[in-house]
Design a protein around this nucleic acid. Sequence first.
DNA 1: GCACTGTCTAAACCAAAGTATAATCGCCTG
DNA 2: CAGGCGATTATACTTTGGTTTAGACAGTGC
Lengths: 222, 222
Amino acid sequence: MPITLLVAVPLSQRAAAMTEQPTIIIVDDDAEVREALSSLVRSVGLQTKALASVPEFLNEGRPDGPTCLVLDVRLPGQSGLDFQRELSAANIHVPIIFMTGHGDIPMTVQAMKGGALEFLTKPFRDQDLLDSIQLGLARDRAWLENEKAVAALRARFETLTPREREVMALVVTGRPNKQIAHDIGISEITVKVHRGQVMRKMKASSLPTLARMADKLNLAVQ
Amino acid sequence: MPITLLVAVPLSQRAAAMTEQPTIIIVDDDAEVREALSSLVRSVGLQTKALASVPEFLNEGRPDGPTCLVLDVRLPGQSGLDFQRELSAANIHVPIIFMTGHGDIPMTVQAMKGGALEFLTKPFRDQDLLDSIQLGLARDRAWLENEKAVAALRARFETLTPREREVMALVVTGRPNKQIAHDIGISEITVKVHRGQVMRKMKASSLPTLARMADKLNLAVQ
DNA sequence: GCACTGTCTAAACCAAAGTATAATCGCCTG
DNA sequence: CAGGCGATTATACTTTGGTTTAGACAGTGC
């Protein structure tokens, strides 16, 4: 039986503490608009970072706390949609709210398909933007929380030796020790030893718990 | 310990055989457009049903096989977006492709947020529609397959007696028999009997398998 | 009343899981 | 080369899990 271990490696570096303050990043090439939006967002008690272009975002570094991007689709250099694609390709997950003065439907469709939270046409009501921002932050908080949990799991999984990983992959399918031993050609007692180690290292209190951890890690036997 | 069983009841009646032929439902009030689209879709070997209005859809009854809706957003009576909301509220899951001659961005955003697959502006290229339809069918097939599996699980779960469900809910948390017995105030051996029954009735070959079934059923102990 | 279902329990086992101790072997590193 | 780690195994036990057989009791429906 050929056994392969598949572990999802979610390249995101955004797994961060939940205690951090939320940050709203506003990107618009028009300084006046930037300032107005920034002021609006600050008026509801949220921390903002106003930028004129996209490269600044990557240079500035990403905040650790819950984040929401407010982007003009038409930006100098790279368009907002290109940037969205780029973030997506780099596996960087941030809720994006697009704004546009002269957008069209295909552009809107592309943005929404790409996972945009909202696509506002200027002029829009302040409250619409603020509502979207709150929704974006809520989603990002949930996402960060999940990401944090998965990262913790992965860290534990990485402390497993190759053999332990192999045994774990089979254990979570529900195969009995005897069968696992036969599958990988070792004795049953050795399987038990590895299995015990896996439970301890993964901090799993029960078999169903371990199975759910494996599922979250996309651990699979093929 | 207060124990509650939560079972998701997915009101959809669309769990059907995978062997059914796909059907594309085209709704447009313009008979010429309807015929042209219908002909286009049939030209690639797909079965179509052309309708002039939305109520017809519900009267006609829904096809059992993979389905994709092609809707003009502006329809006589109820708008396409209203209809989308209605389907969603009724928990009827069908991929929807919208078409429009005079749409705007807010309308597009609403449709996409509502889960629309595509939002095409007339005139569009035939191939764009056909591509979207194929994508819609693929998604619907996957959805139907999953729905079918969950329905089968639910059917088995419903053969369980109240006590068996209670025991199952605790078993899948990983609690040992002795604790479960204490939790619900019966003897350990009775728990074992119920547990065995649960495994047989649910056709679960192992504990992790049973746990995954419970997860799919949204079975929870609170 | 009678059959039936659901629930509960016990005795008697057998199989599987889990733990502790101890020992062997290969490999790599300081 | 000594020490550590990973992997392997054995012995010896304890604890759980799981099945079978058999009996008891309450409530439902015919």
